[in-house]
Each structure stands twice: as C-alpha cells, then as structure tokens.
C-alpha cells in the first residue's frame, strides 16, 4: 500500500470537491474492495476522501411509491429493508446472494456499484492487463477465462462486472444520482452507468472525476415474481458464473437481466417480448452478438437454462 492522505468532508459537494481537487484521489466508503486493491497496488490513490460521515444511509420512500436508497446504505440493511423486501424482492435476493454476511455489513450501495472486476489477471501485477495498466495488453484473452465475459467485451478486455446488486438494479430500471464539485446534480440510468471496455477498459463507469454517488432511486414497483437466480460452483461465497435477475408474471411476460456475462449487467429489452415463448427465444437474441472463449462458451447454454429455471419458478 502506498502512502496516502485522508480527509472526512462534511457534505457530499465538499467530498466531490475534495476528490476533484487532487489528482489520483478516491472516495472510500465500506472499503471492502478498495482496501484490498490498495494493498496489492492495483489501486494507488494518493488521497482518500472518506464519505462514511455524510449520512446518505437511509432508504426513503419517494412518492408515488418509489424508493430512494442512500449511497451509504449497507448491503445488509438494504437487503433487510421492509420496503425493499416487499416491493423490490429481486434486489433483496441479489444482495443476499453476494459476498458474506461480514462483507455485506460493511459494503455500501454506491461501493457495490463501483466494485472492480475479479479477473485473475487484473489481480496479478506481473501480468498484462489493460484495465489495470492501460496499453499493457490482456493476458486473459488467451489465458484462463472460464469466469470472464462472453458479450460486451472487446479485444482489449474481457473482464466482467462481478456484482449481483447492479444486475437487480438493472432489471428494476434504477437511476444513479450524483453530485459534483460544483454541487451540480445528475441522474444516470443504471443502464448507462457501467461502460463497455472498448479501447479504454481502465474506465469502468460513466462517472466524471470527483462525481459522487449520493443515491440510487427505484421507480414504481414492478408486479410479478421477483427472482434472482445465481449460478456458481459452490453454494456460497462465490462470484456468479451466470446470474438471472427477473421479474416475471405467471403468463411468462416480464423482464430479465443477466449477470456474470459482460462488463456490465446485461439486459436487452427488445428480447423481453419473447419471454412467453420460453428462455431460448430470449437468450438467442440477448446473446446474439456473443463472442465467447473456448473456456466460457458454456455460459450461453447456462444463461438459457438459468432463465428457464426462473420462468418455471414464475409459472409454478
């Protein structure tokens, strides 16, 4: 870990200004990802702006019947929130499918959105990784890629967004609220929050420097069965090979997003009209542009079958 300076500002705008003021400054909240990355010198911020004292830790109703989740609401609290459990079950289930109880106690809503990939080459500083060190290359392309992206990736990077929470937020059409150093607020649809790698895989999101997430808002609840189906090699404490966040009616209509397959939660709204026809019609369209490696081609079949499981669950 490199030496860094540290401050605790009083307001969100001050926090944003503090990060904007110094090169290579970063926000820190729960620290469950950033601290590990700093120890390995994958992240080397010179200044940390601790946002834990800013409040932003409530889940509030925002009429009519919507919800506003403070950026610092802990994953455990969000998953247990009665409103979330009642109206946004897919989100609660996704959170509980992630990490461990100890990590969820610490991890925040904003931090979860900003967690970085778990590609093994990103974590090994002796290996080429364009996400960690732009221009160094991508060892994963012809390396170990069983966990990595099958769609949305590029020739420079095949890393996935590893999280569960964002996949549920994507199916809920959530919106990320931010504030910048000047106090200007912005609303970013979660669909546009995570970037595809293109030629700049080092940039994970569309946030600007110093822009601070203050909340995530959820629109009016969507009727149907809220399902989060996470498929993994062991029963707990593992990243998704594929996950399905779905809200489905008994007639099979609804919406679906996929996790573990792309650099961001992967949802193709146009394919959702085919949901009543069954999983294959949907996944054929959702993954039409897929470009898997030999090691991760199984994810296409797995996504189809995991969606079948969700549809069967909704119809039962």
């Amino acid at each position: 870990m490199k030496s860094f300076t540290y401050e605790r500002p009083g307001t969100p705008a001050e926090a944003a200004a503090a990060v904007a003021a110094k090169p290579n400054a970063k926000f820190i909240a729960g620290g469950t990802n950033l601290l590990d990355l700093m120890k390995l010198q994958i992240e080397t911020p010179t200044h940390l702006v601790d946002v834990n004292g800013l409040g932003l830790d409530r889940v509030e109703p925002t009429p009519p019947a919507c919800a506003r989740i403070g950026a610092l609401v802990r994953n455990t609290d969000l998953a247990a929130d009665p409103r979330v459990r009642t109206d946004y079950g897919v989100l609660s289930r996704a959170l509980l499918a992630g990490a461990s109880g100890q990590l969820r106690n610490k991890a925040t809503t904003a931090g979860n959105l900003l967690q970085r990939t778990r590609c093994p080459y990103f974590y090994d500083t002796a290996q080429a990784c364009n996400k960690r060190q732009p221009g160094s290359g991508c060892s994963a392309l012809d390396g170990v890629s069983r966990q990595l992206a099958v769609i949305g990736a590029s020739e420079t990077c095949i890393a996935t967004h590893p999280g569960d929470m964002a996949v549920a937020m994507r199916v809920l059409d959530a919106t990320v609220e931010t504030v910048d150093a000047k106090g200007t607020e912005r609303r970013i649809p979660v669909a546009e929050f995570h970037r595809l790698p293109g030629d700049t895989p080092n940039v994970d999101t569309t946030l600007k420097t110093g822009e601070l997430i203050t909340a995530v808002t959820l629109p009016k609840p969507v009727a149907g069965m809220h399902i989060y189906r996470k498929v993994r090699d062991r029963a707990s404490y593992a990243y998704a090979l594929v996950s399905v966040a779905a809200i489905l009616g008994k007639d099979g209509t609804g919406r679906v997003a996929f996790g573990g397959v792309a650099p961001r939660p992967w949802r193709v709204e146009a394919a959702e009209v085919d949901l009543p026809k069954g999983a294959k019609a949907v996944t054929d369209m959702v993954f039409a542009e897929a470009n898997p490696t030999r090691d991760n081609a199984y994810k296409l079949k797995l996504a189809e079958r995991a969606l079948t499981a969700a549809i069967n669950q909704a119809r039962a």
Binding site: R118, P120, Y121, Y123, D124, Q127, S139, G143, V144, D233, R234, A235, S236, Y237, A238, Y239
Partner: peptide
C-alpha cells in the same frame, strides 16, 4: 504463461459450510 492463475482463495474455491 506457465502459472496457476487463480492464486487466491477467491479464485481457488474450496467447499464452504453451505
């Protein structure tokens, strides 16, 4: 490249209680 790529306990999965 000649190495074990999943060289931590997040990548090398062993059974958990569940």
């Amino acid at each position: 490249r000649g190495f074990f790529a999943n060289h931590d306990l997040a990548g090398y999965e062993v059974p958990v209680h569940a």
